[in-house]
Design a protein around this nucleic acid. Structure first.
Ligand SMILES: NC(=O)c1ccc[n+]([C@@H]2O[C@H](COP(=O)([O-])OP(=O)(O)OC[C@H]3O[C@@H](n4cnc5c(N)ncnc54)[C@H](O)[C@@H]3O)[C@@H](O)[C@H]2O)c1
Ligand SMILES: NC(=O)c1ccc[n+]([C@@H]2O[C@H](COP(=O)([O-])OP(=O)(O)OC[C@H]3O[C@@H](n4cnc5c(N)ncnc54)[C@H](O)[C@@H]3O)[C@@H](O)[C@H]2O)c1
Lengths: 208, 208
DNA sequence: TGTGTTTCGATAAAATAATATCGATAACTA
DNA sequence: TAGTTATCGATATTATTTTATCGAAACACA
């Protein structure tokens, strides 16, 4: 168990967890780094290194005990204690995210959405509340929102970002295809689906 | 203009493009690597290196000529010649993607969706066609689909992946939170939104 | 109990990526 | 026109990440 974990390693951890959960369902109790490496298309040394950074229970000849490895992964990934998140922009993408029930198992509690358009206010299909933007200050004060998800049109993303920062939220996942400026104690991650697709297309062309 | 471009560099290129388009609108004609670096929070040497890999027109004291740099970026990123993509799963996420009009400007042409549920067949809000899954072979044969986007429930993702591969599509963007197995000449990229959020939450906790 | 096999973790080496340094060049200024 | 400055690109350095190597631990089985 080392102290620092690289972001590349972090990105692989969820895949280990997913795979381990799958094979545990199949009744497997122990697994070797080699088996994991083959299944996920990674190097086995890399697998051992990654796992060593969050767990410490590999045994020669035996491999890893799946249950405790899963436990360590879930603990590290914070899939136990929920983090509260809210969405800005209750449009197509925003409501898809709001009504998606797969976040809980990753430790995320998507609570509500905010939209500038009062007509959007009310409840989503799955029954989660949608508020108007001016209700944010009050709500933010009374509860501890950790993460904001931006799903508003690009031209409004920066202004929404500013409002988010003003209300004390320190982490933002931004789906709008623009670079956002914010104080550097605010963590911003850009999730640009169009770029992901474009990069895939580039790789495809490069291969031929 | 070098030959090989690292994936880290590739991920940064769209941000350069976005920024350059923005400042071009403001009437700026030349820009220095330093200005770009400051705006996007990168190292200025890194910016020069990245840009050198796709363009070659920086001039001492002047910087880069924005127009030609934009041209080179767009050309490299393939934002001119459109690549055709289709979506599997016309649920909440799938239709949000289908009706999103921001892909075109990144060179992606999202044509249609396929869903196993016949009730979904017809047209989306924006008028794009939704077909049943069994219509895929015929359609795939008559046109050149480059990219498949998987937006079906996790438990069906692998079976849909198999169908996609059978129909000759060589690149997949997978939104289902499962690892997919496919022949290694098929490029698979996982876009797991829940993990992105979870990682943000981990970083946030680590900072405090 | 001893030998062989598997698999781990630690350490070393190689590959990749980021950052720093510096001479060269082009524009500006006096 | 000569000196000054901003900025580039090339090269060198440093840091990070991946991959290889190898001794030791743990079990199987004779
Ligand atoms: N739909 C997709 O698949 C997709 C894919 C990639 C990126 N995006 C990006 O996600 C964002 C949302 O896309 P969408 O398709 O859901 O758009 P949308 O038009 O369906 O929804 C946008 C919502 O934001 C609300 N809004 C506008 N200004 C606001 C403000 N200042 N504060 C709060 N809410 C505001 C609107 O009322 C609307 O409900 C866009 O930036 C888009 O570029 C979407
Ligand atoms: N909604 C989100 O914000 C979100 C976020 C992250 C990941 N995801 C993932 O994206 C996928 C879709 O999510 P969603 O919220 O749109 O779900 P959804 O239930 O709204 O839609 C799923 C659609 O897939 C169709 N489908 C089922 N089996 C199919 C098959 N074999 N072939 C073709 N179509 C099939 C269904 O008929 C349905 O229309 C899921 O894997 C989910 O985990 C969704």
């Amino acid at each position: 168990m080392s102290d620092y974990i690289s972001s590349n390693t972090m990105k692989r951890l969820p895949f280990y967890l997913e795979y381990l959960l799958k094979i545990r369902d199949e009744g497997i109790v122990n697994v070797s780094s080699k088996a994991i490496a083959v299944a996920l298309n990674l190097g086995e040394v890399q697998v051992r290194k990654d796992l060593a950074s969050i767990s410490k229970n590999g045994r020669p000849k035996i491999g890893y005990e799946i249950n405790s490895l899963i436990g360590d992964l879930q603990k590290f990934l914070g899939y136990k204690d929920l983090t509260d998140a809210v969405i800005f922009g209750a449009g197509k993408l925003g409501t898809a995210l709001l009504d998606y029930n797969g976040f809980e198992e990753c430790g995320l509690n998507v609570l509500m959405a905010f939209d500038s358009n009062p007509k959007k206010a009310g409840k989503s299909d799955s029954g989660k509340p949608i508020y108007t933007l001016d209700e944010l200050p009050m709500i933010a004060k009374s509860m501890n929102i950790s993460i904001a998800i931006i799903a508003v049109p690009a031209q409004h993303a920066q202004e929404v970002c500013d409002i988010i920062v003003e209300n004390g939220i320190k982490a933002i996942l931004n789906f709008a295809p623009v670079h956002l400026d914010a104080p550097k104690d605010v963590i911003i991650k850009n999730e640009n689906l169009a770029y992901s697709l474009a990069l895939l297309s580039i790789e495809l062309k490069a291969k031929k």
